[in-house]
Design a protein around this nucleic acid. Structure first.
Lengths: 152, 152
DNA sequence: GACAATTACTTGATCGCTCAAGTATATTGC
DNA sequence: GCAATATACTTGAGCGATCAAGTAATTGTC
């Protein structure tokens, strides 16, 4: 029979497809955001300084740098995030939540929490924590093409 | 702090992004297939009759019907799968692995297993099994609560 | 048996993301 | 202190997926 890792990976793909479809429809319906956008805004909201550079966002979200550029554009047009030049490095930028963005994140958080809880309603809190922990272990693999590196 | 389910979902998204990136680069490099294609071929290979209708594939893979149509096309051109009309229902088709397709699946399986194992090398077999089990629980949720219905 | 409704799939338009290449700034070596 | 190289991001082209609309065959109703 097939090996466990490959099986688990298949399951991961399916579960991700199911989960993002649910989240997209719920959040999209309520607040006009995709789950990918919610993740981006959430990363900003949880940054200590409230700002992040595109490159940091890319690492955090598992996106290519160009993906961040393109994801930020419509959010900026809608006044949800703003861009400022980085004073220490003129190549880089800084992306920050605007006031409206902060409000939107707070509003959205409730929907996200409810939807995520609904998705995982068959799991106990302990199981959810363990799931997160196991996934994080996979993530931590700096295997060739996909790993996470630090920038400073 | 945010609720556990939402946190776990974030982790799920990141891990999925990392994992498919690795798999795509490994399998693509060795056999010229994407991981999405491997999943499709795997579904066919594990079908008892060896054939599946596009609609079944869509359900199985968490894809839209049109996605299956478009995924099958290049595989057909390369002679990896074939399409036949369904004798019982002329609207439907049947997608089957060709001989070359079967060979390709077998070859690829090894690379997939190796890559998946590499990704999860920090986890024990027991942990991998548990991960799969936890993910499957989420999947089994046809969650529907709280009110954002779609209007169309 | 004919007409409407449903089902199975395909096609058109579009979106989000990727890689490759380009631009601008920083850093390093001599 | 100036060229060579590296870094941070943006732009262009393409791919894979989606939804909406279209086509063709089946089923259901009278």
């Amino acid at each position: 029979m097939p090996n466990e890792a490959a099986e688990a990976l298949l399951q991961l793909s399916t579960t991700f497809a199911v989960a993002t479809k649910l989240l997209d429809s719920r959040i999209g319906g309520s607040h006009g955001l995709s789950y990918a956008e919610v993740r981006l805004l959430g990363a900003l909201a949880s940054a200590p300084s409230g700002k992040m550079r595109p490159g940091e966002l890319a690492l955090d979200l598992g996106l290519a740098a160009s993906g961040v550029t393109r994801a930020v554009l419509p959010l900026e047009k809608r006044g949800i995030v703003s861009r400022e030049p980085d004073p220490r490095d003129a190549r880089a930028g800084q992306v920050a939540l605007t006031g409206a963005g902060k409000r939107l994140v707070e509003e959205t958080a409730l929907t996200v929490d409810e939807s995520a809880s609904a998705l995982m309603r068959r799991l106990s809190v302990g199981q959810i924590r363990q799931l997160e922990r196991l996934l994080a272990e996979i993530d931590a693999s700096p295997a060739k093409s996909g790993g996470s590196r630090k920038l400073s």
